[in-house]
Design a protein around this nucleic acid. Sequence first.
DNA 1: TTCTACGTTTTGTCCTGGACAATTAGTTCG
DNA 2: CGAACTAATTGTCCAGGACAAAACGTAGAA
Lengths: 302, 302
Amino acid sequence: MNNPRFNIAAVERDTGLSKDVLRVWERRYGFPVPDRDDHGERIYPAEQVERLRLVKRLMDAGHRPGKLLATPTEELNALAPRRPEPPGAASGAGAAAELGDLMSLIKQHDGAAYQQAMQQRLARQGLERFVQDTVAPLTRLVGAAWEEGSVEVFEEHLFTELTKRLLRQAIATLPGGKRSPRIVLTSVPDEPHVLGLLMAEALFALEGAECIPLGTQMPLLEIARAAAAHRADIVALSFSVAFPKRQIPGLLQQLRTVLPAEVALWAGGGGVKRLPEVAGVELLISLERSLVALEAWRRKQM
Amino acid sequence: MNNPRFNIAAVERDTGLSKDVLRVWERRYGFPVPDRDDHGERIYPAEQVERLRLVKRLMDAGHRPGKLLATPTEELNALAPRRPEPPGAASGAGAAAELGDLMSLIKQHDGAAYQQAMQQRLARQGLERFVQDTVAPLTRLVGAAWEEGSVEVFEEHLFTELTKRLLRQAIATLPGGKRSPRIVLTSVPDEPHVLGLLMAEALFALEGAECIPLGTQMPLLEIARAAAAHRADIVALSFSVAFPKRQIPGLLQQLRTVLPAEVALWAGGGGVKRLPEVAGVELLISLERSLVALEAWRRKQM
DNA sequence: TTCTACGTTTTGTCCTGGACAATTAGTTCG
DNA sequence: CGAACTAATTGTCCAGGACAAAACGTAGAA
């Protein structure tokens, strides 16, 4: 039960920090300082891996590595998510409290109760409002708690898994028939988050679009092939807030070049907020905007 | 629409070959030979990326890189999956044909028809036989076709996504109540495949176990935490055939050391076939064996 | 004061070329 | 024909240098 030994590849897996970053941090900041095995290769004690995970989390929340790594581990208190915290004035306090209740079910690891509560909300609100007023804000809430460190990785996974099931189930009950436009939904490699895609799919399907869900992590060239094979009118991608922002414009531009001009390219999710425009790409900065875009697309076809 | 430029990170993403491998292949075998940009950094033409994908696929099927990279691209014909191809004598020819029909629906990109056909089979067979006689062999069939190159990436994604939905939906309809044992289901980082987990979950849930599905790609230390938080009796992992076999024993051993001794550790999926025993880990080489293991666990508790 | 333009620092990624251990293939011997 | 051994193959790791893009901070303009 003691003393697992992490080599540099294991640390990369478990922290998401690349080997290059791990080595250059060691050189520059003096942390981490792994032991070495017989062959001079790095062996990280579990304690340092923990601290790296913490640092990574705080970085995702906007802190800078240089500062963090100079601080002793009591920066655990620097957990302050340091986002200006826009007070949720949009929705009433009652709604916020209800969402908090849902999250606390997750934090009590009571998956069954969570599922039941969500099913009830779905029945009460209907799918469209359920997506916009429950799933979306709850996802943001969990994301915020994650940045704060008040949610464990496995709790977040449980939340994601159960919520995925609810959405998929709801989507499955929608009627079939002749539908348009045809929308391929997927994400790029290194973007494993699927909740945003499912929310979009639910809304698009409600509006009568034909959704072709391809899951996550499609290589760019494959996305182009899929669009051709499915005679798609639109390719919709999702980028989570966790996705490295810098890479997004390049990716979109690259995909735009391999995609036929008559296929629209839409990009949504938390990752595309405050992003510069990319020629030929529609940035959907919110779920509502997705529906606006869909309507605009339809008008343009006539 | 032409000439997308892949840097080495993009190629790593799209092919799954690490930067180190890409550079060392260039040094040793003279392929790939990317162009260089103004700063001397590698720029891979799309054509070479394609070829790398092909090579990777053939490697996963058992070929060796040294040979492949020395062969001109007409090794497209070496597609022969070179597995001894055990003729499917186990199930009647009729069953095999039916599975082929299902797969051809995917290859025609007719998701709706596929879903309907699978729903029918589920209703006809019941969940247990549906999992064992339809989903499992169909998954193997798609995997074999994938190695052969007769299935596109996006077709495989569509199959996976739709099948996931069917299984999750079926699981959701199972009754709740007091259940035992408590089984945490997940996979390690770098193992994104979830179909195996879902099949196992369906069977376990049918047998009255309490399944806690955490999705895929949990860091090892988090798996231990999740097991504690959920008071799990068993942690069940899934390794697909695509997962690098060498890493599995080390991973299992490492997880075994961080997991309390009273929590059982089970590993299943195509990746654990022909694997040496690991102390304290139950290797489930088939779905049937999973049920045997569950029964054995129950007997031991009495 | 608030905002914009510009220099500075920080930071991630890429580079080369060497080394080595673990797996796999091939060969010889019992 | 199988087992033991040698040779080739192959992925991963290492060091340390370099550089561009992003973040930051400061000064000047509105």
